[in-house]
Design a binder for these strands. Sequence first.
DNA 1: ACCCAGGGTCATA
DNA 2: TATGACCATGGG
Length: 220
Amino acid sequence: MVAVVPKPTLQTVFELLFQAYGPQNWWPGDSPFEIMVGAVLTQNTSWTNVEKAIGNLKQARLLTPQKIIASHHKSLATHLKPSGYFNIKTKRLKSFCQWLLNQGGEMALARRETEKLRIELLSVHGIGPETADDILLYALDRPVFVIDAYTRRIFQRLGLIGGDEPYEQLRKMFEQGLGTDIALFNEYHALIVLHGKDICRKQPRCEQCCLQSFCSVSAA
DNA sequence: ACCCAGGGTCATA
DNA sequence: TATGACCATGGG
């Protein structure tokens, strides 16, 4: 006999995570531009390493699009070193900053329609769907739900997805299932990341997990 | 010594 | 379309 695990709604999962962890107040950063930079630097990289790189940029007073573009590759790469992939990220950060200035700067983005802006972001070399959506949600306050590896892992275990769906399919599923709620999207993704780090990979059987009653792994 | 992080691009089949 | 290689540091 296989135990039948009930499937929670997306709202229920949020409630459980929020009750377990409380508000996360994402994204850490002092300004929208710092958040955008962090979104690029945190690609496949732990946040503690990103903080060091951002600290270097701040100390060198390079945390503006103009200064980043004006920096030489080698110099900028040295500042980014702690965040890993520094040669690639140097190019990506420069491409993004060049795009930002071409758009007319940060203020000009506020008038752009979200979907148009998203397409534009995705056209920048080194900006993929997750990075674009991090920027849209956390720096530009747009109602976009961020999908990452933790989201796939956690919701696969809850039996709500297969886990290999295309990014866009999952994004639309969450956005339609939750309604347009920027504050909810903001908090939800932060909670998913925290929960993913905290428990879901380190303890595959999830004995202490706040989602335990819905988790197909712990019930198996 | 090994595993992986708040991904994305590119080459190959 | 769908895998696999590659990028690179730092903490567990």
